[in-house]
Design a protein around this nucleic acid. Structure first.
Lengths: 186, 186
DNA sequence: CCCCGATTATGATCGCGATCATAATTCATT
DNA sequence: AATGAATTATGATCGCGATCATAATCGGGG
């Protein structure tokens, strides 16, 4: 969902780092000196939050003195390190980039609110329809690049429940699957 | 969750408007000319998103030409109107306010991610503990000002399920309720 | 081409949250 | 103080998603 965050940080000198599974990127209370772009892998933030590959990690630490929670790799991961001071300097020196950063964050807020409301739907078919609607918007046919197991994880269902929901939606003539990874709502 | 958004918009001339239940604030595709602060009531955004009193509404429309979805009042509501041009001018004229706006949005993202991960917990007691942990952080005793029915709604449970989860947590000696609206995790 | 893991299923059972019913307590309003 | 609404419960039943088991198909690497 947050794959685009990195482009606002274009001109900044970075270095990369690898994390083994279980290794900590930072701990709660550590002085916040950098934000991160998760290139590969999965992190656990705090006790149950998770960050996926492609996401910007700890962007709120830009505005905090210390990291508010632990960040631990759940799988072998690679991160790009953006020193906080450089990022803040970069943003304040370039108002239009700061504005773009705000725009990025506003988009994140919007997407997350949508995802949150999705999770309030208890019945699996409803949730699937809402998810496809969010993705598809106006388009009639929706293409999913990710495997369905990943989608299931994303919307808080087991993959079994997702398969069954898709099967049921097709039985009820509410969904057509024209091909692999293709979905059309009716 | 978003009660603080308004303070970044201090110096801007606004007007207020009342909405009857069912009345539209804007429709998808309408030119985005303003963002809003929901003072009272509840709005429905799109097909299932909801905005609560105190939230900033359509802040992402600052960076979009048109509103991406409908906004309809679900109950009699009052909104404060912030003209988009004035807000953008205000932000670009005051870099430190733009930075504060980014900080606000980053905090929103963080809170929403936390809430989202909360919703992945299927068992009600787990979700309740996670919710209290999020609120309480370090404090030992957590005070909830809202009624429990509102909390239940917030975390995607029925109030019955919430009451039962609280009762069970107390039975299992994982929670103490020292008084009305007070909770202490063990 | 073959093999093996990942993906895509489907079936059976179980647990738990949703739902409906009922009631005690608290709170607001007159 | 009285009264009605909202809040805080608790019980019974039901439906559906989670879990565990099993299998077909796809896809990539040797």
């Amino acid at each position: 969902m947050a794959e685009e965050g990195r482009r606002f940080l274009g001109g900044i000198r970075t270095r990369s780092q690898k994390l083994d599974s279980g290794e900590a990127l930072f701990r709660a209370g550590d002085e916040a000196r950098a934000i991160f772009h998760l290139e590969r892998g999965v992190l656990r933030l705090g006790s149950f939050q998770r960050a996926q590959a492609g996401e910007l990690v700890a962007e709120d630490a830009l505005f905090l003195p210390a990291y508010p929670c632990d960040a631990v790799a759940l799988s072998p991961s690679r991160i790009e390190i953006f020193p906080k001071a450089a990022v803040l300097l970069h943003l304040s020196a370039h108002p239009q980039i700061n504005m773009a950063f705000s725009a990025y964050l506003a988009g994140q807020v919007r997407a997350l609110r949508g995802r949150l409301d999705l999770m309030r739907l208890n019945r699996a078919p409803d949730r699937v329809v809402a998810y496809l609607t969010q993705l598809g918007a106006d388009k009639d046919t929706i293409r999913l690049d990710r495997p369905l197991v990943a989608v299931a994880e994303e919307i808080g269902l087991t993959h079994e429940a997702l398969y069954r929901a898709l099967a049921r939606l097709q039985r009820d003539n509410r969904l057509i699957r024209p091909g692999r990874g293709l979905f059309r709502l009716l």
